[in-house]
Every structure is written in C-alpha cells, then in structure tokens.
Design a protein around this nucleic acid. Structure first.
Lengths: 222, 222
DNA sequence: GACGTTTTAGACAATGGTGTCTAGTTTGAC
DNA sequence: GTCAAACTAGACACCATTGTCTAAAACGTC
C-alpha cells in the first residue's frame, strides 16, 4: 500500500511539498514548474531529473498526499474507544480528531480541491482515491457504526448511509470556512463536532425506522 | 439585484453560456479564449468587443450564473406549501426540487467548482456570492425552518444550524456523484432526499434538546 | 439600395511556459 | 584528494495564448 517515493532524498521531499502547495493554490494549468522550483529552493532541472514532466510530478504529488492522508485516516479511525460509556463526548472528540487531522488539514484541503477541479481529467487517479484512498472514509466509518449498532448503543439500519450522514453533518458547519481556504480554529472544530454529534445521536438513538410505523414521532407526540 | 447583461444581444448569451461551460470544465487558467469562441460559434474578436479581457469575461460569467441561480433559488424556496400535513413527503419533494434545480444543475456545478478553485483569487466576487447570492441559501432555508418550528411541526433551537444540516444531509448521498461531474438521476435524487429528510425529521421531531433529557423520541414513543 | 454597425478571418507582436541542453559547481563516499 | 553522482544557472527552441490590428464581409434599418 505505502508505495510512496518519499525518503529517497531530501530534495524529493521538498519538491513534493512545494508542488502540493502550488498545485493546490493554482490548480494544474495555473502552476508553473519555475514557481515550484523557487518554492522548493531547488533548480528547475532538478525537478525534471526526478520527474520526467509536469504531469508525472502531478501524479506523484497526488499519490504522495493520498498515501499520507490514508495512513493518517486509519490511525485516527483506530482511536475510537472500544468501551464508550459517554457516547456523545467520545463521538465529539473523535469527530474533532477526524476533522483536524484528516478533513481540514493541508492534505485534506489539497485532495478536496484537486479531486473537484481535476477529477474529470484524471479518472484513473481519482478512481484510486475513491476506492483505495481517503475517498473510502465513508465505508471505513460505516464499520465503526456497525460496531456501535451491534452493541445496541445506536440504532442504525444502513451503516454506510449513517457514515455519509455523519461526515456530512460534521462538515455542515465547516464548509463555509474551508471553502475559502481558511483553517477552522480549535473552537470552531469543537462546536462543529458537537452540533453534528448531537443531531446524529438524536436521529439514531431512537427505534430503528423499520420497526416503527413510518409516520414519525410527531404524529405520536401531538 | 438582477444586474445581468443578458438579453442585450444573442451573441452575448452564447458567449456567456459557452464561457461558463469552458471555465467550469477547465478552470480559469486552463481556459483559452479561442476555445470559448469556437464553443460559442463566434470569432475571437467578438469576444474582445464585448469584454475587454479574459478576466472581465470571467467575472461577467460568474455574475450571470449567480443571478440566474439566485432567481431559481428563490423561486424554489417559495414552493414549500404553507399548510403541510404530510411533512416527510413535502420536505422530500422540496429537497428534490432544490437539488435538481439549484444544487446539481449546470449552474450549481459551476458555482461549486469555481468558488472552490478560484475563490481565493477573487475574494470580492465570492464575498458577494456568500452574502447576496446562492451562498446565503442556508439563511434562506433557516427562515423556512423557523416557520415550521413556530407552527410546532418541528422542534428546532437553532434555525440556521438546522438549515446547514439539512443541506448537508441532502448532499451526503450526492457528493460522490457530483464530485466527478456526473449528474444524479431522478431516482438518485429521490433517494438522497428521502434519506436526508427521514434522518432530519428523526433528529428534529422530538422534544427540543434543552427542554428534555438528551434521550429523545424513543422515550416519548415507547 | 445605401449606410453605419457588428462580425469575421487572419496576421501580428509580446509574453510566458515547457522541456532540453551544456558547462560549471557542489556534495558525499571511499 | 579523487571520482562519480547530484545539483545549479542560464541559454535555448518550441509552442500556446493573449490582446491588437486590419480589411473584408454580413447585417439591419431606413
């Protein structure tokens, strides 16, 4: 899995880092090799020595970021406690770790922007992203919710749907910030996570929807 | 508000439409005026006659799309029935209209991609988007939820938060499709809306969170 | 049908980016 | 210190793009 070329040499790393930065800021067409060279503190020829052409460099950058993001994602996913007696607090802390280290950091921003703007141009690369990379965060989260559901701590029919909704809820408050390249403060992350988790738990701590008549609680309450 | 330059002449329209298409597909730097000219069936000089330079054309396109999207948004927002006796069905149909005509159509895709990729480069334009354009869909939806809450049909503390979450939930199932330039089918839109609305109602039909202990609907129903 | 406006096709200079090449310099291993 | 590998600086050909300019053609209005 970790088929990164990092570690080969210090120059490679600074090239990859600088390239990620510039590609993210300017997009593929808007990026010039010279700009990357300056940012990396390296001569242009050195870049061409390591990567045959601009497109080679670009795919190398994407793979590098994807590998790192993927590793980080799995490291975060494993931090949810096995025994959770304070579900809301645990889920909130978990969501904060997830957003801070995966969704709203530099790599997350890079992938979000690049998948959006160049995804159609590189179907292969981003099919990889979707199936083997950070794009499958949804199904990975689904497994976590399956565990929680089987333990009876949540009532979930469709684990993958719940995972997508959980991510969507967490992002609901952060989109406006990240959309413009801003990085949310710790407080904003905390609030976003708290709001999302409260709504999520309210939606998924009741009776599972198939075991009760579809007309929901409202009819019963009134 | 409707400060569009449309209608001046047929050429302008085809230029704006073609430019929107190409800018959306290729991004600002990746777009060449010639490509737009061909797509619009117009000579390059004609484009320079109407718009002084590439950047002028770009901002004109964004304003045009924003105006249209804004009008469409308000037309859709007004379609939610005053008396809603089937809340789930009404909200679902509403969400379908919203996604089909505002969020997932050509204009929605354009704004999503362009705000994401060029937002930092044109702060003024996208501040407009956020405050006076489609970007304020959240607060507009908030007003709707305020109505529903005051009627007692939903229990909502924070209307704007609920609106953001509603949008996020609707998008949860569509993101993977729209992210790659695809357009969801009617069935996918319907399913996404249904899933979102069911979860939303489950989260917001119980007792308001501050007035009752956190364990919600379940307790009331059983 | 005449006249002014709009559009067209193409040539054009200027610019900036890609990728190659060369000659000289640094670096690190032994 | 030597030698090979990596790196640098700069020149270079090549190409695409922007924006201007011109002369001819199409259009529409009276």
């Amino acid at each position: 899995m970790g088929h990164t070329q990092r570690g080969q040499c210090a120059k490679r790393i600074s090239i990859l880092d600088a390239a990620a930065e510039v590609f993210c800021r300017e997009g593929f067409s808007g990026t010039s090799i010279d700009e990357i060279a300056v940012e990396a503190g390296v001569s242009r020829q050195t870049i061409y020595n390591h990567y045959r052409e601009k497109e080679t460099l670009f795919t190398a950058v994407v793979e590098d970021v994807m590998d790192r993001a993927n590793a980080m994602l799995y490291s975060i996913l494993s931090t949810f406690p096995d025994k959770s007696d304070r579900l809301e607090d645990d889920l909130t802390a978990f969501a904060v770790r997830l957003t801070k280290n995966c969704l709203c950091n530099q790599d997350g921003k890079f992938l979000r922007k690049l998948v959006q703007s160049e995804g159609e141009r590189y179907p292969h690369l981003f099919e990889t992203w979707r199936q083997h990379g950070p794009g499958k965060i949804g199904t990975a989260l689904g497994a976590l919710f399956a565990r929680l559901s089987h333990k009876g701590v949540l009532r979930i029919d469709d684990f993958d749907l719940a995972a997508r909704q959980f991510l969507a809820l967490v992002n609901a408050d952060l989109q406006m910030i990240t959309l413009f390249g801003g990085t949310p403060t710790d407080e904003e992350l905390e609030n976003a996570a708290r709001n999302a988790v409260q709504t999520f738990i309210r939606a998924y701590s009741g009776t599972a929807s198939e075991t009760a008549p579809r007309t929901p609680a409202l009819a019963v309450v009134s």
